[in-house]
């Protein structure tokens, strides 16, 4: 499978309930200040179980995401990505962590967000290439494990595929021990 439309979601630690106005502001500052091509930021805090604050971009979009009733930072690859699957997985997860680090350090927030790197969701947002089925999981699992072994260590995490086949292909990654954003980035470097 030529992996495309990768998404990663790093959940926010419980208790760090977001101030959506601050998130709107923080993500908005990425538009002029980032080497990425970002376009605009949208506030969807009036709806449930979906994006809360959405930063649209050309190659990549980021959002404060509330899908599945859990908040987190969602990375979303929107343009076709080049390279091997291993490279795409590494690059996308690294970007997600780098942007989580930016947010954790962002002075816009009165209560700084704290991300749970040990509680992550991986998605392939493309039903054409990756239906949410066991077969897709079987295909992707080795490549996913190769990446996650670096971050958490072999055997130090569990992978669970989302059983609802209406959903996009989703794997829940749960590490047995807490990992900080900085540690994870170091391990991927």
């Amino acid at each position: 499978m030529n992996l495309q439309n990768i998404q990663w979601k790093i959940h926010l630690a419980d208790g760090s309930a977001p101030n959506v106005h601050e998130w709107f502001k923080a993500l908005g500052t990425w538009i002029p200040d980032s080497p990425e091509v970002f376009v605009d930021v949208a506030d969807y805090s009036h709806v449930q179980d979906g994006p809360v604050i959405f930063l649209s971009g050309h190659n990549v979009a980021y959002s404060l995401d509330g899908t599945g009733r859990r908040l987190g930072l969602l990375y979303e690859r929107r343009q076709p990505a080049e390279g091997s699957n291993a490279e795409k997985l590494n690059e996308s997860f690294t970007s997600t962590l780098q942007h989580a680090a930016l947010l954790e350090a962002d002075g816009t927030f009165k209560n700084k967000p704290k991300f749970l790197v040990g509680d992550v969701k991986f998605f392939v947002n493309n039903r054409g290439i990756a239906p949410n089925k066991d077969a897709t999981f079987a295909t992707l699992k080795p490549e996913l494990e190769a990446l996650l072994n670096k971050v958490y260590g072999a055997g130090a995490y569990t992978l669970t595929r989302e059983p609802d086949t209406r959903q996009r292909f989703t794997v829940h990654v749960k590490a047995k021990a807490a990992v900080s954003v900085a540690e994870a980035l170091k391990k991927l470097a």
Binding site: N5, Y44, F54
Partner: peptide
Amino acid sequence: ADLAEEYSDGICHITTRQAIQLHY
């Protein structure tokens, strides 16, 4: 739901003329 998730921003918007719009 699938189209909004895969191609848009996860939002379906109902218009004032009974259509649905997807953005981004």
